[in-house]
Structure formats: structure tokens, C-alpha cells
Design a binder for these strands. Structure first.
Lengths: 226, 226
DNA sequence: CCCGGCTTTGAGGTGGTTCTGAGATTCAGT
DNA sequence: ACTGAATCTCAGAACCACCTCAAAGCCGGG
């Protein structure tokens, strides 16, 4: 059980109506370092999946209110690409095919081994990280597709266009020193004030914490390596 | 248990799931002057390699969570160029080829001689030094890209612009005697005080220790050759 | 058109850096 | 040991890079 106490926004959504099983799943996955939300019927599951962002969803094939398969179909139709692991009570082949056709990324037949469940979730979580365009920044990530930064403590902060551009330039070459003049000429107009870069560094530090961008006095700025 | 030593001097990352072997490797390499972090599975190894900077990585071909080969492939795909030494239990030729194709710089078949391991790591480390812009200064290095000095004891001290310029001029030709007047006219205004160079030599000695810059009375200064 | 967030400017403060100069110290030659 | 020159040490002043932040202009969505 590797609990990665640092890399911590991985968010999971569990759609499971059996309270006992739901509780067990939530506990197990939380024990493995995930933040878990539980929805007890398809209606609530659909709503949560639409309104919040998760790394991975676990969906019971059979759900009250709206069937699990139906929930997944609707989500996919709405453009939600969150990785989905379908849980099915039936070993039936047709059932698995239905799930995958509906847009599931993997399926698991109940009853399952806990180890296998965790392994599958991990695998999907990993795929999520690779496919989203995430640039490591210190201990967090810069989310290229959403223009926001994912901090090591799990917070996600939205960045304005300029903030994002600056942070990206710094993050692409970690450890390198970027001369202030070079940053200024690359990101701003030549007529901009001398201190324009300083100001955005200040904004970024206010949002991300002061440890992220290091000043190298007389030379420029640098992404903190820790 | 991932050991977090401050990766200040030459930093190594060892990805090895066999705790006993991992401990032995870490001890051996630490004894040879390296700072070693250990990751016990591919997941953690990948994360560490992405978030921190190392000189050399040692990667076991077989790893839990994410296979060693897969870890390396992902790292290379993300643009991580850190030198990688692949450890493989199999003498199989195909296996070595796989490793090198995945982006390994060298491979080593278990069981191996400790001397050979250290020699290989040293070789890769030296290559790293060449690519990072490191100029030897006494027993330490002048880090051209970071504008700081890396002392033999592992400390890194920030240098001001003038300190850095002076040290660089001295370091580029080790052993040569640089006349004080030449240094003064090259680095300072003609109107500067006569003793301006002396002052900066003093500052440098205060930061780096007194053994680094040698005075050649009547002529000038020189980098200590040891 | 109005509002709210984003962008940009510029003023004011802080602290590190540069540089001078002067006294203390070391050295070579006598 | 003496002496003048070279060098070391260091405090203080001026300077400059950087930080902080308020305020004004800009721009786009409701």
C-alpha cells in the first residue's frame, strides 16, 4: 500500500447503490490515497459527474433511478471523457460488451479481489494523467488543456491567459534560468513597462505559493525544483 | 519508504522493488559520494523522476505498478533526458535491446560486480556533467546555467553577478595566473578603484572558502589546482 | 450598456549588490 | 628586525533589482 501523501487531487466518483459495498469501496480507495465521492443512484451520479471533475469513475452496471449503463451513455454523449470502470455482477460476455460499447474504459466482474480493483483504478488513473496534458511544476502540475494549475495539496487554481503563458514558459525547461528581458520580449510588447514580468511573477506566487518560482537576482527567474 | 535526501550534490534515483538490493545499492552509491533517492515501484519512480532532477537513474527492468521499461518510455516521451542505467535480471539479448530502444543509456545484467556498477554510474554521471554546463572549480563546480557554485561538500551558494563573472574568468583556465590589472580592465570600469578586484576575491573566498583562489603576490590570482 | 475580471502602469518600499576608501596585515628584500 | 609595497578585511554609502500593490484602462459576456 503505497500512500502517496503528496500527489493529492486524484478524485474518484463511485456510483453504487449497495450501501455496504459503497462504503467498503470508498474506504478502500481512500486508504489508497484517493478522494472519493459516492453517489447512490444514477440520478445523483450523473449530476456529480457533470458538475465536478474526477480522474476516474466506478459505475455499477445496475443502478436505481437511472441505470448505470444509461448514465455512462449520457455522460459520453455530453462529452465527458472521464475514465470509467464498469462494475458488473454478471460474468456474461454480452454485458461486458455493452459496457465497453457505452464508453467504459474497463470493467470488473463482482465479486472481485480488492487488489485487482485497486490495480485497475490505478491503471485508469495513470492513463488519465498521461492523456491530459500535464506539465510537472515543482510537486504539482500545470494543466495545459484547462489553463489551470494543480497544486500538490490538491487545490486547483485557475490562471489567467498571461499568468498561464508565463508559467508554461518557465515550466517547460525546469531548472533553467529565464532572463527577465527574454521573458518580457517573448510574452509582452516591447513597449510594455520594464516591470511587467515582475508583476506577473508576483501574481503567480500569490496564487501558487512563494516556493514555486525562484528569483535569481541579476539574472532572471526559475521554476523551483523542489 | 522513499528516502529523501536532499539531492544537492550528484543525485541518483534508484528504482528497485527488492528492498534488500535497493538498500545495498543506495548504501554503496552513497559511499561513493552520491545522494540517492529510492523508489520501490514504477509509479513512485515515475513521479520522482518527473518532479525532481537527477544526474543518473538506475531502473530495474521489472517493477511493480508500472514496469521499468514502461517507466523509461514514458519519461523519454515527456522529454526527460536524464541518463538511465537499466538493470536486468535476464542475460537475454532481446531484453537489452528493448532497454536501449526504450531510451536507456546503458544496461547492466544482474548479478553484477559492485565495481562495475560504480564504474558505469560514474561514466554516465560524467556525461551528465558535460551536458549540464559545469566548470570544475577546485573540488567543486561552477554551474554556468544556474549561476551558482556547487561546493565539494554539497552546498550550493548563490553568486552575485560580479562574483560570478570573476570566478568564471578564473575557472575557465585553471592553473593560469590572471594579472590583477587584466582582471580589472576586463570586468570593471577604468574608473574603478585599484582594489576592486581584491574586494571581490575577498567576497568569493568568504563564500567558497579560502582554498579556492590563490594569490600570486606581485602578479595576480589563480584557481587552486587541487 | 454595464459589470467584473484581466491587463498594465507606476509609485513606494525593501533588501541585496556594487564600490570606495581606509586601516590592518602580510610579505620580500634589506 | 625594519620598511615599503602589496594585499586583506570590512564598514558604509549609493545604487539598483526586485517586490508589493493600488489604481486605471481594457475587454468581453450578460
Amino acid at each position: 500500500m503505497t500512500q502517496d501523501s503528496r500527489a493529492e487531487p486524484p478524485g474518484l466518483l463511485v456510483m453504487e447503490d449497495d450501501g455496504e459495498l459503497a462504503g467498503m469501496l470508498a474506504g478502500l480507495l481512500r486508504g489508497n490515497g484517493y478522494a472519493v465521492d459516492v453517489a447512490e443512484d444514477g440520478q445523483r451520479g450523473l449530476h456529480l459527474a457533470l458538475s465536478r471533475r474526477y480522474n476516474v469513475m466506478l459505475i455499477d452496471r445496475r443502478l436505481p433511478a437511472i441505470d448505470g449503463l444509461e448514465v455512462l451513455i449520457r455522460l459520453r454523449r455530453r462529452g465527458v471523457t472521464t475514465r470509467a470502470l464498469m462494475l458488473t455482477a454478471l460474468g456474461d460476455l454480452a454485458d461486458r460488451v455493452d459496457g465497453l460499447n457505452a464508453g467504459a474504459d474497463d470493467y470488473l466482474v463482482k465479486p472481485f479481489e480488492v487488489d485487482e480493483l485497486v490495480a485497475r483504478v490505478r491503471a485508469l488513473d495513470r492513463r488519465f494523467l498521461d492523456e491530459a496534458q500535464l506539465v510537472p511544476v515543482g510537486d504539482g502540475f500545470l494543466d495545459m488543456s484547462l489553463h489551470e494549475a494543480a497544486l500538490p495539496d490538491g487545490r486547483r487554481v485557475a490562471l489567467s491567459r498571461r499568468e498561464f503563458e508565463l508559467l508554461r514558459v518557465l515550466a517547460v525547461r525546469p531548472g533553467a534560468i529565464h532572463p527577465r528581458n527574454q521573458l518580457r520580449s517573448r510574452l509582452f510588447e516591447d513597449t510594455s513597462a520594464e516591470s511587467i514580468v515582475d508583476t506577473y511573477v508576483y501574481y503567480l506566487r500569490r496564487k501558487l505559493g512563494s516556493g514555486v518560482i525562484r528569483t535569481v537576482r541579476g539574472f532572471g527567474y526559475q521554476i523551483g525544483t523542489l
